[in-house]
């Protein structure tokens, strides 16, 4: 019994980080109508940024978010307004291929810069855990990562619900022309959405760096996980993202080291085939 509970707890904790990975992807998908194939690389860039800054000035990696989040937000805005808005005028297929090109460029640029060595952001609470009962415990790190993810997602959904800017982002996602009739600059809104997606990638990157070892080439698998979250949850749906994260987290934990990834991939393909609009889409 304790064993089953342990698996469920681990799965849920893992699901938090998956949801966070997917939330940036789902924003781009739902609002900009763009599949950003470079999302995984953005996450890994966030991992490197947090790891390196933390090492350089000797602070807890979590504190590096103060720098990485605004920085990635600005880079995202610049990327969208400088490049992707332009390509999207040509068509959606070219835009997809441009993000694919970006992902390839970024992965190899990371390789050139940092070599293929494994990296990890070290934290003092790496191995501590809270014992609940015999055979049942919660890793402190996992809990912290889960809380970071949850807080990020809650703040983001409040922002989208309650602020003028957030409403304008949702309005743009519903109907770009009608939004522009309300005074919304659609291209600027796209840039902001990309900025936010990048900012969430920075946070997800930090979580990845604290939890697992990563390489310059790790982006691909995180992209697929993010995509899986979007597919299972339904594009543009934040509650869907949370549930999908949990489903994938559980699948991963149940499958274990050998088959976790495989089960997750198969699950995604099945969802794509059976219910491509996702669980939480109307």
């Amino acid at each position: 019994m304790a064993q089953v509970l342990q698996v469920v707890i681990n799965g849920i904790l893992l699901g938090g980080i998956y949801a966070l990975l997917g939330v940036g992807m789902t924003m781009m998908f739902g609002i900009v109508k763009l599949t950003n194939l470079a999302h995984g690389e953005f996450v890994i860039i966030g991992s490197y940024a947090s790891t390196l800054i933390a090492q350089a000035i000797g602070v807890d990696p979590i504190l590096t978010l103060v720098v990485t989040v605004p920085l990635m937000f600005l880079i995202g805005m610049g990327l969208q307004s400088g490049l992707i808005n332009r390509v999207m005028m040509i068509g959606s297929e070219p835009a997809l291929l441009v993000t694919f090109g970006l992902s390839i460029i970024l992965a190899d640029a990371l390789l050139l810069l940092f070599s293929a060595d494994a990296q990890r952001a070290n934290v003092p609470y790496n191995i501590s855990s809270i014992k609940i009962s015999a055979g049942l415990s919660i890793s402190v790190l996992d809990l912290i990562v889960f809380c970071i993810a949850l807080v990020t997602i809650i703040i983001l959904s409040l922002f989208l619900k309650k602020t003028y800017l957030g409403r304008s982002i949702r309005a743009t996602s519903d109907d770009t022309e009608a939004a522009s009739l309300m005074g919304v600059n659609v291209k600027r809104t796209y840039a902001i959405a990309m900025g936010i997606a990048m900012a969430t990638a920075a946070i997800a990157g930090l979580c990845v760096a604290m939890k697992w070892v990563y390489y310059p080439s790790s982006g691909g698998s995180y992209l697929l996980t993010s995509f899986g979250v979007v597919v299972i949850g339904g594009m543009g749906s934040i509650p869907g993202t949370l549930v999908a994260g949990l489903i994938l987290g559980l699948a991963q934990v149940i499958g274990g080291a050998n088959y976790g990834q495989l089960i997750a991939y198969v699950l995604m393909v099945v969802f794509l085939a059976v219910r491509p609009q996702g669980l939480f889409s109307k």
Partner: peptide
Amino acid sequence: VLFRMSGMYFAVATWLVSEAVST
């Protein structure tokens, strides 16, 4: 499986299949 999708869904699903086989 794949022909039920189109556009970006098709694109990423094919990639997923390939990654799954690779794994």
